[in-house]
């Protein structure tokens, strides 16, 4: 099941040129871009691993795309995303976030039901990938 998180996730995966153009847009807006990766795709998993510090004071997207390429190489079969943080007073939040890397095979999620008091049922999502220990969740096909 194709993971749809962040901007552009219902489009075909962005090419490196398209990623460069998006990053350049973010830099031109004055946003600080950072690279993150994870192998736990649960939608409530907000805190991904940081790939180095956020990249401040850059003028050109080439430096960031080089980091994305390095992150994909160091963590193949992981999800990689870019966050662009807008630090202007009154916003101070992530302005743009999109996936720039994903595993070849994405097993998806199952719906879990939990019976509780008074015949209530609670629902939650469980990622098949997290059945395996971290680091070996997405074996190469």
């Amino acid at each position: 099941m194709r993971l749809t998180q962040g901007a552009f996730s219902f489009l075909p995966d962005l090419t490196d040129e398209e990623i460069t153009a998006q990053v350049q847009y973010a830099l031109d807006k004055g946003w600080a871009v950072s690279v993150e990766y994870t192998d736990d795709p649960h939608p409530r998993n907000n805190y991904w691993e940081m790939w180095g510090l956020p990249l401040f004071d850059l003028a050109d997207a080439a430096g960031i795309v080089a980091e994305v390429v390095a992150c994909r190489r160091a963590h193949p079969e992981h999800y990689v995303r870019l966050n662009a943080f807008d630090s202007t007073l009154g916003r101070q939040t992530t302005a743009l976030s999109f996936l720039v890397g994903r595993p070849t095979v994405e097993p998806g999620f199952r719906l879990e039901r939990q019976e509780t008091t008074d015949r209530c049922i609670r629902y939650t999502l469980h990622s098949y990938a997290t059945d395996r220990p971290a680091g070996s969740r997405y074996a190469a096909p």
Binding site: D13, V80, R102, V105
Partner: peptide
Amino acid sequence: RPQHQPFRAQPASSAAAR
């Protein structure tokens, strides 16, 4: 798997891609 181009199939170097 839908007919998306996977990220991984791209050339590794951005220079080459450009």
